[in-house]
Design a protein around this nucleic acid. Structure first.
Lengths: 226, 226
DNA sequence: GACCGCAGTCAACACCATGTCGAGTCGAAT
DNA sequence: ATTCGACTCGACATGGTGTTGACTGCGGTC
């Protein structure tokens, strides 16, 4: 097996086993090396030895800090998803003020976050196929976003801005999935992809038409139909 | 490197090196073994030895038939995409007759094809991250479908059934990407996914609203706006 | 009917990455 | 000064991949 050895149940820190001292910089050195190497070649082509040497330690010592190569990536992914979660901010609460502007803001922020760490995101997408731990973490993150979007759609329907239709959860899943795949193609640059400069607007358009049946949804107006 | 060794330029058959004789059944035995094993465990957990033994030959002999494990999967993928291409049939030409029904038919046929070979599709999605050859083939296939959908959207706009909006190509990319990712989640069953029974209708709804701004696009009527 | 060539076969080998073990070093606390 | 635990690495075991070289058997050829 290649899966990470983190004791599945609780994983307070995904990195070192126990206490903390000088080894902290070694840990961050490994992380930094990983991010640097990821910028120049695919994750699969980076060996544990590369990571260790890059951090100035031997291969066995690497195992003192991380249980596997994948665990390093997992730590990197943790950071990115945290940043993405933070980026969402209070956008959802302000949706009714100006739906188009705020949905756009939401998509644009995610785009910026992922784009800022494209190497990590791309690497994760690549190992998700073979690593159950990455798959699990990503599923968890996605589930949070799906729920948030689902709630937003339901709120928009409740205030009469969006028509009924698909179950909000199914719609949220479809839209989030689309974003994920489209971003992946855009960042990876292989296969048909939307130009990076246009991608936010393309995604936004599909979101708006799917949710509101129009690209210019009605602003505020707390009542029912005008 | 783990990439397939097919002489990149022209690859008439992806399998055996040269002539043909009794070894034909060995080749198909390998393919059959791969498909069988794929049904019970992930591609990464299948060794070349497993494939060879399953086909009743030794590991070195495997290399007589295929240059690598990935090449076997590639051959399997070839079949599936061929079947999917065939499944599209003449649906595109009949779109105007009844857009909703025909778009649905199109999505449903792809769903049936992929669902019928989910193990292969899933395995491909998993190695796409690490294998350039699979990535290239998939990109090629996707490009064909994107072009077809793009043309269909443009035709619907030309006959006045669909409003202008996003560049048809960008829209086609986004919609195809969505389908791919949503199917993957549904078949893999990890992470947020649409129930298999609903997935066609969910996708259809997003396609229709994105293309027509309504889930009930106008039938035939060769003229402009009614 | 001896000879060639070639599809087909495999034991044995070279290689490389992963993960583990046991024997250390060194600084802080007792 | 001794002990303890954080930290380190040389050396090894394991397991998968890809290659080599020798062998078999069969269809054609002079």
């Amino acid at each position: 097996m290649t899966t990470a050895r983190t004791p599945t149940g609780a994983a307070p820190t995904r990195g070192r086993r126990a206490g903390r001292s000088t080894g902290d910089d070694r840990e961050t050195a490994i992380l930094a090396t990983a991010e640097r190497l990821l910028a120049e070649r695919p994750f699969a082509d980076i060996s544990i030895d590369d990571l260790a040497r890059g951090a100035g330690i031997s291969r066995p010592t690497f195992y003192f800090y991380f249980p596997s190569k994948d665990a390093v990536l997992l730590t990197l992914l943790d950071r990115v998803t945290e940043e993405a979660d933070a980026a969402a901010g209070d956008v959802f609460e302000r949706l009714a003020e100006d739906p188009r502007a705020h949905w756009r803001e939401l998509i644009a922020r995610f785009h910026a976050t992922f784009g800022g760490h494209r190497d990590v995101v791309l690497a994760c997408a690549q190992v998700r196929g073979t690593n159950a731990e990455v798959r699990r973490l990503w599923a968890e993150v996605l589930e949070r976003w799906v729920r948030a979007v689902q709630a937003a759609i339901e709120a928009e329907r409740a205030r009469g801005a969006a028509p009924d239709g698909l179950p909000a959860r199914d719609l949220a899943i479809a839209l989030n999935s689309m974003n994920e795949r489209v971003w992946y193609a855009t960042f990876a640059g292989d296969g048909p992809a939307v130009a990076e400069r246009d991608v936010v607007d393309v995604l936004l358009d599909v979101w708006l038409t799917a949710i509101y049946r129009t690209t210019t949804p009605p602003v505020t107006t707390s009542g029912g139909t005008p």
